[in-house]
């Protein structure tokens, strides 16, 4: 009897600790203090972050890429995630969001009402972004056209429907530490920021473990294509033997050194990267060449 009471007590303590550990933790209140938004830089952050590739319509081109109505479906081992409307519509988009709300979403994976986002939204990468870039992005997003499109909910199975569980997942996998650690030169540092942060390249190019976390020991080692046939190629130096100039040219034009062209989701990524300054594409190439 006494043992049973102890058992219940310990179970309750365990549950309380689990509840506490899994709580959504937003970014620091003072993170954005004193920062002045620059929407022009925000536009570059927008393309570096690839927002439109998922949040615009799947076949969007040109100005339609700026209509972030959501609605695309992202397949995963845990179910299908529906991309939300992040246009500045006040009710069905994120028109009511402050820059702080955006920072919480992107850097901590926490919604304005304090719930966890699923990591299909790549905040594990965005967590490494600078607060200034997030503020600038917010200033740019509010200038885009509003859409009143309402999207269906995610299609997930139990237990993945329990968002609180993501809190424990974040303890394991959410970090703002660089994967390519240590001091690097200015160009590689810029590339590291773009690749590991806003560019979120690893979300597809690095394999995941059983829990859906990135396998950092196999960084950029290639992975199965979550949305169907084929594989996302490995882009570490052992596998991607292109010169830095070839990589930069690919990101600008979509042409491989053999003049094949990018396809699938990567064609969208190239469309984004082509809008960045040439120095950024060169920095990404330098970073990829600097990986172990």
């Amino acid at each position: 009897m006494r043992l049973l009471r102890w058992g219940i007590f310990l179970a309750l303590v365990g549950a309380a600790v689990g509840w506490w550990l899994s709580r959504p933790v937003p970014v620091d209140d003072a993170l954005l203090a004193g920062l002045t938004p620059d929407p022009e830089n925000g536009a570059l952050v927008f393309w570096a972050g690839g927002c439109a590739s998922c949040h615009a319509a799947d076949d969007a081109k040109g100005d339609d890429l700026l209509v972030l109505a959501g609605g695309q479906s992202l397949a995963s081992d845990f179910g299908a995630f529906t991309v939300p409307n992040i246009s500045p519509h006040p009710d069905v988009g994120i028109g009511g969001w402050s820059a702080q709300d955006l920072a919480n979403a992107m850097m901590a994976g926490v919604s304005p009402d304090g719930a966890h986002y699923y990591p299909s939204f790549p905040y594990t990468s965005y967590a490494k972004m600078s607060a200034q870039d997030v503020v600038d992005l917010h200033a740019y997003l509010v200038t885009l056209p509003a859409s009143d499109q309402i999207n269906p909910p995610h299609d997930l199975g139990f237990p993945f429907t329990v968002r609180r569980g993501i809190g424990l997942w974040k303890l394991l996998y959410l970090s703002d530490e660089w994967v390519l650690a240590g001091d690097v030169d200015a160009q590689i540092a810029r590339g590291r920021y773009l690749v590991e942060g806003p560019g979120h390249c690893s979300e597809c190019h690095t394999p995941r473990d059983f829990a859906g976390g990135l396998d950092l020991s196999n960084w950029m080692g290639g992975a199965p294509n979550p949305s169907g046939k084929g594989r996302i190629p490995a882009i570490d130096p052992a596998n991607l033997t292109w010169s830095a100039a070839d990589i930069a040219y690919y990101l600008e034009s979509g042409f491989t050194p053999e003049y094949d062209s990018a396809g699938g989701h990567m064609a969208k990524v190239v469309g984004n990267m082509a809008r960045l300054p040439a120095s950024d594409r060169a920095a990404i190439a330098a970073y990829l060449k600097a990986l172990p």
């Binding site: 034009s253 979509g254 062209s261 990018a262 396809g263």
Partner: peptide, 21 residues
């Protein structure tokens, strides 16, 4: 003139070609 050619390759591959492998 190179940009639009690359764009036309990409636009078609994006929709109609499966990834490698």
């Amino acid at each position: 003139a190179m940009g639009p050619i690359g764009g036309s390759c990409k636009a078609c591959h994006e929709t109609f070609r499966a990834p490698e492998g």
